[in-house]
Design a protein around this nucleic acid. Sequence first.
DNA 1: CGACGGAGTCGAAGCGCTTCGACAACCTAT
DNA 2: ATAGGTTGTCGAAGCGCTTCGACTCCGTCG
Lengths: 337, 337
Amino acid sequence: MVTLAEVAQHAGVSASTVSYVLSGKRSISAVTRRRVEESIQVLGYHPNAGARALASSRSNIIALMIPLRTDMYVPVMMEIAIAVTTSARSHGYDVLLLTGEEGPDAVRRITGSGLADAMILMDVELDDERLPLLRGTEQPSVLIGLPADTNGLTCVDLDFGATGALCAEHLAMLGHRDIAVIGEAPAVYERHTGFAERTLDGLRSRSRELGLRVLHRPCEGGFDAMSLTLARVFDERPGTTGFVVQNESAVEPLLALLRRQGRAVPEDVSVIAICPDQVAVQASVRLTSVAIPAQEMGRNAVEQLIAKLEGHGKDDVVLIAPELTVRASTGPAPTAS
Amino acid sequence: MVTLAEVAQHAGVSASTVSYVLSGKRSISAVTRRRVEESIQVLGYHPNAGARALASSRSNIIALMIPLRTDMYVPVMMEIAIAVTTSARSHGYDVLLLTGEEGPDAVRRITGSGLADAMILMDVELDDERLPLLRGTEQPSVLIGLPADTNGLTCVDLDFGATGALCAEHLAMLGHRDIAVIGEAPAVYERHTGFAERTLDGLRSRSRELGLRVLHRPCEGGFDAMSLTLARVFDERPGTTGFVVQNESAVEPLLALLRRQGRAVPEDVSVIAICPDQVAVQASVRLTSVAIPAQEMGRNAVEQLIAKLEGHGKDDVVLIAPELTVRASTGPAPTAS
DNA sequence: CGACGGAGTCGAAGCGCTTCGACAACCTAT
DNA sequence: ATAGGTTGTCGAAGCGCTTCGACTCCGTCG
């Protein structure tokens, strides 16, 4: 293993000079710089991460806590994780992957050991156990998601309230009067993650203003669950002509079931999905959807974090404005016959 | 930040004693141990990762390189990543997440900087650029996937050859004669990842023995691509009664299209998917499938790696035996009418 | 023309931990 | 009783890097 000292010797300068060439924290003459850089090249030098962390008390690592469950929103999680990793790299940081499994202990471990300089938490619950710890530490952090009390915290999330409202508006504009919301699995609500409730609240209050009637039904993913849910929806509100689907894995079952029942999309029934664009495009009907901007959320979180690490960050809640893309699954409400 | 020295002082012992309590590398009297552990508790001590890494030249970190593309097998990737992370934790290791983006440079950076003690590579290509580097380093590594030349490497993967054979056997046993393989997107073949080819080879050679006729068609995911592909299959081989689908995102479109054409599954046509069990269960027909054992692959890779780190690892290729689960999408071939 | 300040470099002091050799105290076997 | 082991503890020497103060050259300004 090549060390700083060896590079220094090879270049005929002192170790500290090499260090300053690397960090740029003091001015170095062009000649010296070039010589040092050449030696680094020739010897194939890589600074030792541990030594660096010890001496500077900065690890250049960001910890990312992802949910352990693979039951929900997997593609979104993955996309966020990848976006976080690549943008962190572009700022010179590596990413340490933690699962939610350890819970608050993981936070303690990371802050205590200096393993990471900062952390990003996903899958935040309304009243998350980890929040008090985050508030009580110097270590910068950013949440992806929105807890009940955001005081002293930095959060990034899609504006799910506005998302719900947007869906209501689109359906109202098309003349629909009776709409159904196919929500997340009951477990998601019990877990108090908030985003599903926020969507619903936004949708409900806008619907009230617009005179829409809303029926909300949580729904596990998959065919059988969707089948039951759908039957109950039409049972209770036969006149339902608009659907808003939040559960990704309920989308395709819903479309198939509607088709099977002879209800055409979008002629008889309109469907809006809240899902990544890729899913909306690949479905059996190209779906009108509000995108979940996973990439943007990941990138944004990293940028907030870097700003904090560099000292000019502020505690702030960034709600990304939702965008509705009209595709082939929504159309004018059928005229009552 | 609490240091070892402070713990030592608080417990009235020397720093080295505390260190030995922590590592267990020398025997410590029960009394001393207890005192030290108590001090650690009281002070809330966490060893500093950087200092530890520097002194011991072990970081207790495993690097995991995941593919950058989110176009394929996302749930599988995610599941593997999570399995790797949790089993690494249970062995006292953390996981550093790297994207394939950096390519070979990432390998150099990690081995050079001592940031990680070992690495796991996913999405390995047949003739991967990173392999020479891995062979040339002391650092243990495990591949998830199978390159062309496995010499001097440790690999974990599903036995895709056997998987293909298994599919052929099942369909042959049910009396099918003409089968079609809906393969991965053309890009996957061009990328030379190998697993798709291995599946096909296994399936073809077993089919030859069993007298099955095989038609192979690569296919992008999604509805439109599947629609075209399916049309061409029936055009060329109208008598096709069995399908093997490798591309996860082609499964649901295929089922929908068959339904639309009035071909019943499994009465008229049988379908086997190669996909995670969860996908198979959630589809619109409960799918007979060969599972992709993501969890097992991840766990296995970590175990191989730990073994190597502890010195008793061997370079070896572990091919996980495929398992076919019969569900509702396969049945006897229709009798020619 | 001497004092001053900036640019460029060096030496040395740690950062917090692991680990090696040393040593004291005790136990056993002769 | 003595040589030889064990067991438990300590002190000190680094691991490879960053960073601070100090020093030497210069060019520049009053």
